[in-house]
Computed example of a mutant assay.
Amino acid sequence: MKRILLASASIVAFAGAAAAEISFNGEAALGYNDTEAESDGTTGGDEDRGFYWDAELGITFTQELDNGLVAAATVTSDVVDNQLEGDIFAEGYVLSLTSETAGLFFGDTDMAANLRWDGVSEMEQDGFSETDGETVLRGDFMAYGLDVSLSALVDDTTDDDLIPVEDTLDQYSVGVAGSFGAFEMSAAYQAEEDDFAQAADIDNGDYNPNEIFGIAVGTAFAGADVDVAYARDLTTDEDSTGIEVAFPVGPVTLGAFYVAESAQDDGYGVAVDYVSGALTVSTAWENVDDSEDWAIEAGYDMGQGLNFYAGVSDAGDDYYVASTYQLAEGAQLLVSYGVDDDNDSEDEIGDPEYQEGTTVEVSFEF
């Protein structure tokens, strides 16, 4: 669902010589969609989806400590979701303690390897775990011009009586990123940890229990940006080696990548992006593991707050047209029509991720 981030508002209080700040931000959407849906919200059923609405609220508490450190806590809550009453529950929580050169984070925050890793498109073996509701303890610091992160998953799984099964740290991970003259590099490693996935019954596709290592280097050469990366899954003993190039020519940017894979067919692709004045056009074609995909998407700014968008993606199975209009400062109207012929996009049609069917949605900024 397309949402607009609400502008932050702040309330400032004072405690002694240190300033404490409470800031609010959120998301809100109200719309109508005419697609027939199943009872679980997926498309292809016999019930009209009709009106939908939701709102999320984020609250950040910040305190400047006397020793120069900054303590902060962020809580994200779902306020309403297609109902006008109900309990407010926390969806995300991050507690942090930071300085200019270091930081400690606890909660729904990025894991170290995934945070620092910057590889090549469509590499199969660089699947570092991503946070999706797991609890993470991570430390960041700067050393010799490098940004270094260390993290571990907090095993907070419980039994049927809500008694902790274990109280340990799992899947340690490290990530490093930095620049050396004209070169940029990143390296990442995560340990193997299968017990945590089984105990927590994780099946979200973002957690990878395997041991993975990766290293990538990028530079500018003859006007082109060139990136080379290598990743190895040490659990399966499979690897990926990739190169990616982006070359600007006036308003056009040409791109290409090639990835040699040990476990499947090699992947390769090309892209052409055009940006000139009010017109933006993006095209891409790729063949990954003998599966072909392509997309053509465009946008045009008519001025006076009116924009038009159109695109074909998913190798021609998805297509859409859409328009946005700035009703006034902080208010926007979206009208879109999308088709998902193979029913695999799950209301994320094209790069803007439009819903299937006709959608009319208004969003507000406060």
Rank of each mutant, 00 (worst) to 15 (best):
F196P: 02
F196M: 07
F196A: 08
A197P: 01
A199Q: 13
A200D: 12
I202P: 04
I202G: 07
D203A: 15
D203Y: 07
N204F: 04
G205L: 07
G205Q: 09
D206W: 01
N208Y: 06
N210D: 15
I212A: 04
F213M: 12
G214P: 01
A216H: 02
V217M: 12
A220L: 07
A222H: 07
A222Y: 13
G223A: 06
A224S: 14
V226Y: 09
V228Q: 02
A229R: 01
A229I: 08
Y230A: 05
A231Q: 05
D233F: 05
T235F: 07
T235D: 13
T236D: 15
D237C: 06
D237M: 07
D237A: 14
D237Y: 05
S240V: 03
G242C: 04
F247P: 00
F247S: 02
P248W: 08
P248I: 08
V249P: 00
V249T: 12
P251I: 11
P251V: 11
P251Y: 10
P251G: 10
V252Q: 06
T253L: 11
T253C: 04
A256P: 05
S262K: 11
A263V: 05
Q264T: 11
Q264A: 14
Q264C: 01
Q264Y: 01
D266I: 08
G267M: 07
G267W: 06
G269V: 10
G269P: 07
V272N: 06
D273H: 03
D273T: 08
Y274H: 10
V275C: 00
S276P: 00
G277Y: 08
A278E: 12
A278P: 05
L279A: 12
T280D: 11
V281I: 15
T283H: 02
